[in-house]
């Protein structure tokens, strides 16, 4: 297993995703001799996981079962331990495409936070790209570096523990793309420009508040960035349901009774038995996330 390469079988040292239900998944560090508790009972790693195929059903001690899935950045995003607010897949997908990321891209990111976006970037730029990520919180920087090692992607990423607004990204003239998720991105726009390749590239800033966007856009324009564009993407989930709509009783139909010999009335006769109609449809969840953040994109021209 690796976050950038599929494998068929679960091995000692892997990170596997235990799928209990749609909104209940958990990451498991697979270790010989270790055990994991779930609400269906215990999973014994040596017998239940190691050597099994990813995607298999595992029966737990209480007779219940779970599925064990191969890790992907998307599954990691919904199961990772939060150390900060994180970016979710909808925004990540948009960022990845709008920053033109692909295998070989060199990317700068700050802050690293819980590493939700970082894993998605690494997946996309592997095997020849590199991620330079900057996190000013020492404990978080260490934790995420440890995760990269466990997930076997540490060869693709450099974690720097410094303040991006003061010290920049620690690289110059190498990046194809820069991503900023910090409280005052406008203070890092100059550093973003420095980090980027001479021939240009793409930049993105994620901010929850419009005032932050306003200042960032001004800073981007001042630094000569072009094609400045702010957008917002929201996910709508549709729950598939079968609903039953009852039919009201209109009482006996006198027109039908008057002409009992009519052929069409005899056809209609069994109709009143239907007191409800079932429809396959979708319903929106009662509450949905209405705002994550504004995404501001820009192009750095050749300098």
């Amino acid at each position: 297993m690796s976050f950038v390469e599929y494998s068929d079988f679960i091995q000692d040292g892997d990170v596997a995703i235990v799928y209990l239900s749609h909104d209940n998944m958990m990451p498991v560090k697979v270790q010989q001799g270790a055990q994991t508790q779930t609400r269906y009972g215990v999973i014994r790693h040596s017998t239940d996981l190691i050597g099994k195929r990813y995607g298999s059903k595992v029966t737990c001690s209480k007779g219940g079962w779970v599925h064990v899935l191969h890790p992907t950045p998307e599954l990691w995003t919904v199961t990772l331990p939060h150390r900060t607010q994180i970016l979710y897949t909808t925004d990540i997908a948009t960022i990845t495409m709008m920053l033109d990321l692909k295998p070989g891209s060199v990317v700068c990111e700050s802050g690293t936070g819980s590493g939700s976006l970082s894993h998605a970037i690494l997946r996309t730029i592997a095997p020849t790209g590199h991620l330079h990520t900057v996190e000013f919180h020492q404990k978080r920087a260490e934790a995420v570096a440890e995760e990269f090692k466990e997930h076997r992607v540490d060869h693709l990423v450099t974690v720097r523990n410094q303040d991006v607004c003061k010290d920049g990204f620690g690289v110059a003239g190498v990046a194809d793309a820069v991503f900023l998720d910090i409280p005052s991105p406008w203070e890092a726009v100059g550093h973003a420009k420095t980090a980027m390749k001479k021939h240009g590239g793409r930049v993105c800033s994620f901010s929850p508040c419009i005032e932050q966007v306003q200042r960032t856009c001004e800073a981007l324009a001042d630094h000569g960035f072009e094609e400045i564009n702010t957008l917002e993407v929201l996910l709508r989930v549709h729950d598939v349901r079968t609903v039953s709509l009852p039919l009201p009783d209109f009482g006996p139909d006198p027109s039908a009774e008057k002409q009992p010999e009519q052929p069409d009335s005899s056809e209609k006769a069994p109709a009143p038995k239907h007191t409800a109609v079932t429809v396959k449809t979708t319903t929106p969840p009662r509450e949905i996330p209405g705002h994550t953040g504004y995404l501001t994109f820009a192009t750095k021209p050749r300098t």
Partner: peptide, 21 residues
């Protein structure tokens, strides 16, 4: 199959200009 989701996304662009956002 597991993890089935039926979704769509909603995309909104913004005009960001001094005092006219």
């Amino acid at each position: 199959t597991v993890n089935l989701r039926l979704t769509d996304t909603w995309l909104r662009h913004y005009q960001v200009l001094p005092n006219r956002t």
